[in-house]
Design a protein around this nucleic acid. Structure first.
Length: 537
DNA sequence: GTAGGGTTAG
């Protein structure tokens, strides 16, 4: 607080000194606010104020503002408009490092992790290639620009488009670097497309002579171990040793976790031995995985033993540990043991969380069907965040492999406007090998429409028809139409309606009335469309 | 007057 006051006072002093101090003095102060105070709202506000009262600003001052908006996740709302006004005022023109400003804005869009803003970043990126704009600014995208766009594409599930960008940058003489490859490799690994990831890895090492680092290996090891490809894991670990790359505790954690989840306790223990030999000791996360593994194998005695031994190893159990033990009892149809364990830990005054009670709730009903009902009830009743957390906690529980569970979550994510989460869930279920049903397609189409991704929505409708799911045209087409009315120019709405004339469906009241209003306003002589609307409503 | 912008952590 003290430093903040000092900064404000200094600003006031600079602003009232006559003749006005140079822009450098102001920039130093703003740098201080950004770097040391990390008060991003203040650095952004000061910049706006400087512009308003006519204090000296230059590209560096503006860049601090852009960085601040990025940190505040307000690039779309504030950063982008400020960029516009800076361009108008000529603050950024004639600057040979104008890429810094644009990169920060593009990163801000991508960082928001919202699909439509990622698209905005791509739009901006494409605009910058236009000759008229380029003559004025002499902007040339550099490796950071490309990396940001590639990251955005990967995060919105467009792995192959981002490969196209990798080729584009290469052909334009911008060398991809370790960040470019790591971003791509990580994305392919997350989607379990290990062959594509391996190809990129090979290309990076043998063609581009870029040395992999710990992140590259972590991504690959993660994917290999999740897929049970232990030969790949061993190969990667060997390479790391040769390159003298130190393993993170996280690398160990994920290998051990994957081994335990696949019931390979012996192997997991072997990895723990290697860890100990290299002077590192397993932490609670690793013991939690072991407990998980034993309960998966139905060996609750060993699971409990591992828990009891924590005390002697001087490793403190956490709430996840307690939940995993209870979860093990419940899954192995020992609800009484789960209840006893719960009584023991609460008697010791140990703090539990909502999942402890949830597991107990599941355990109190030993009939498996009832467990399923109870699970569904939880999915419906709690807030979306709670259901998602429960879903993630249940992880590979077979209840999570029900398409209905995904349908409920996707639907609720969409209703909470979390389109990104909905898309990720949809992607997850495909990766898991589940088959989307009519409901899945319908809620996903609704999600894409609400997020303005109409092209994707139409594609999904096509896919739905192809996959043999009978589309619910009433619902899906109205959703897409609503998206058109909201996001697209009227000409596109008309075009869409024309293509839909062949399909039998009825318009919702709200769509029909908006459509009629718009038609009468903009295209009152289009009698064929007017009668079409009247017929369908 | 110069500076200034970067990936993932499961």
């Amino acid at each position: 607080m003290e430093v903040e006051k000092k900064a404000k006072k200094k600003f006031y002093k600079l602003a009232t000194t006559r003749p006005l101090p140079s822009v450098g003095k102001f920039n130093k102060l703003l740098d201080l606010v950004f770097d040391h105070l990390r008060d991003y709202l203040l650095s952004a506000t000061l910049f706006k104020q400087m512009c308003r009262i006519g204090l000296p600003v230059n590209n560096h001052t503006a860049n601090i503002a852009f960085k601040s908006y990025l940190e505040l996740d307000m690039t779309a709302l504030l950063g982008y408009p400020v960029l516009g006004s800076c361009l108008k005022k000529g603050i950024l023109v004639g600057n040979n490092k104008v890429s810094i400003s644009f990169n920060t804005i593009i990163r801000g869009f991508v960082r928001s992790r919202e699909d439509d803003l990622t698209m905005e970043a791509e739009r901006l990126f494409k605009t910058l290639f236009r000759n008229d704009i380029n003559d004025q600014l002499s902007f040339e995208p550099d490796v950071i620009t490309y990396n940001a766009i590639i990251e955005g594409l990967c995060k919105s599930g467009n792995n192959f488009t981002s490969i196209g960008l990798l080729r584009l940058m290469d052909s334009r003489g911008c060398k991809p670097d370790i960040v470019t490859y790591n971003t791509l490799i990580d994305s392919f690994c997350k989607d379990k497309m290990i062959d594509d990831a391996s190809n990129l890895f090979r290309e990076m090492v043998s063609e581009k002579n870029i040395l992999p680092n710990v992140h590259t290996y972590n991504s690959l090891i993660y994917a290999f171990s999740k897929m049970g490809r232990w030969d790949g894991v061993t190969r990667m670990l060997k390479q790391m040793e040769e390159l003298n790359i130190c393993l993170y505790i996280k690398t160990f954690r994920m290998v051990i976790e994957a081994l335990c989840k696949q019931g390979k306790i012996k192997e997991a223990k072997h990895v723990i031995d290697i860890m100990v030999e290299s002077g590192r000791y397993p932490d609670i996360v690793i013991f939690n995985s072991l407990i998980d593994g034993y309960s998966l194998l139905g060996d609750m005695a060993e699971a409990r033993n591992t828990f009891d031994l924590l005390h002697y190893r001087r490793v403190e159990p956490n709430v996840v540990t307690y939940n995993k033990v209870m979860d093990g009892y419940v899954k192995n149809f020992m609800p009484d043991a789960a209840y006893d364990f719960f009584c023991d830990i609460t008697a010791e005054g140990i703090e539990t969380n909502e999942f402890t009670h949830c597991i107990l709730g599941l355990g109190s009903l030993s009939d498996e069907i009832k467990i399923e009902d109870k699970y569904r009830e939880y999915l419906k009743m709690d807030t979306f965040e709670d259901s998602l957390a429960l879903f993630q906690y249940m992880d590979d529980n077979k209840l999570n492999s029900h398409i209905d569970v995904y349908n409920i979550l996707i639907d609720r994510a969409t209703k909470c406007l979390k389109f990104d989460t909905a898309r990720r869930l949809f992607h997850d279920l495909i990766v898991k090998g589940l088959k989307p049903d009519s409901k899945t397609y319908t809620v996903m189409i609704s999600c894409l429409c609400k997020g303005g991704l109409l092209k994707d929505a139409k594609q999904l409708l096509l896919k739905m028809e192809k996959s043999g799911c009978p589309p619910n045209y009433d619902e899906t087409i109205n959703d897409i139409l609503q998206g058109y009315l909201k996001f697209k120019p009227f000409d596109d709405v008309v075009k869409f309606c024309l293509t839909m004339q062949a399909i039998p469906f009825s318009l919702t009241n709200s769509n029909a009335s908006i459509l009629l209003d718009q038609l009468l306003l903009r295209d009152p002589h289009n009698t064929s469309l007017l009668s079409w609307v009247n017929k369908l409503k």
